[in-house]
Design a protein around this nucleic acid. Sequence first.
DNA 1: GAACTTACTTACTAGTTAGTAAGTAAAATA
DNA 2: TATTTTACTTACTAACTAGTAAGTAAGTTC
Lengths: 200, 200
Amino acid sequence: MASINAPNAPALVPDTRTRILDLAESLLLARGFNAFSYQHIARELNIKPAAIHYHYPSKDDLGTAIVSRQLRRLRKWRDLPRVTDLRPNQQLEALFAVYDTHLKQNIRVCLFGALAADFQTLPAPMQQELRTFNRELTEWVAEVLAAGRATQTIRFVGSPAAKSAQLLTTLAGALQAARVHDETPFQLIVGQLRLELFPA
Amino acid sequence: MASINAPNAPALVPDTRTRILDLAESLLLARGFNAFSYQHIARELNIKPAAIHYHYPSKDDLGTAIVSRQLRRLRKWRDLPRVTDLRPNQQLEALFAVYDTHLKQNIRVCLFGALAADFQTLPAPMQQELRTFNRELTEWVAEVLAAGRATQTIRFVGSPAAKSAQLLTTLAGALQAARVHDETPFQLIVGQLRLELFPA
DNA sequence: GAACTTACTTACTAGTTAGTAAGTAAAATA
DNA sequence: TATTTTACTTACTAACTAGTAAGTAAGTTC
């Protein structure tokens, strides 16, 4: 299979398989799992719905592929030198920046926030991957919080695990609030988080 | 129309119109707006789908009726003597108790949390009612927080408006986390909120 | 150059969706 | 008692849903 793209490099012109996954992810975040269809994707990409079934036999497969890729991305990002080298408070700021990017890209919701409401209607493998995604993210943030408190760059009471769970659900909720209203509540909430977490 | 129910009293045997609304609300909270249908309701209530169209001509009408009723309930609850008579910290505990009830009833998500993800796919009147619902709730909590700080029964930094927005999105997110995992994260998060808000 | 694989399209199925129109039986009203 | 209203059911439509099977054209491998 000839490709104009360099191997192991981000494709300049993504293949159909990737374009389907990209668009499905964007539709999933924009509308939820139950409000997008193979037809939506096919129309936008100028292919036939059956072509999507060729790459992702069932919608379950497609949905699971989206969450699995996000999980891979999370692990990759978390272990990036430019992230691991940061001090804990900067790591938290880097996390805030990710959510801010979501906001700015008009996605306005994170994976967790997009799937939590429909959770009971999701195929089991998707549920499992989302649980893993959220668990790993929460554990990472708990470690960052603990390290931050130890070095006095982050301030909070209670256990790192509880604070981590609270922080992440707040961020997910803040994006949802931005979707329902506008940017204002998100900025208000993240500002409040910074005020509480970072000693003046 | 004869009724076995006393007028202006909660119906012992709710009429079809109310039973539709009750079930639709429960399905909406359990599965999201796009994952329940008139057929689901009809089957469960042993009526025909067209009977639902008689009471709620379109799904938009049904969805809007759900949110409108929740908005009426919020206003009623907020103005209840047994709520207005409480001290601010107790009012906040009363709010926590409402979310705890959601959790215990296996609903595990509040109205905002159920609709935020699908927001862009909702009919405009539903969007408007949900915005009003969230705005009024946020304003009420902001007042409670301000009063609580003034009487030194609630502790927080920053503006009541920011803290209110943060608190409510955290609660909504906590219920979503309970849905994805189990009760544990909810209890962890609410425990953390109490620890931060209520002086020892 | 023959055989095989990849990446689709065309054509279809069976089920579900919201929604409509017409009919009906019982209850309320005049 | 006659008329109207309420609360449905039956029967239908048009559109959409995920998913399948068979065909095809181009590229790859032997």
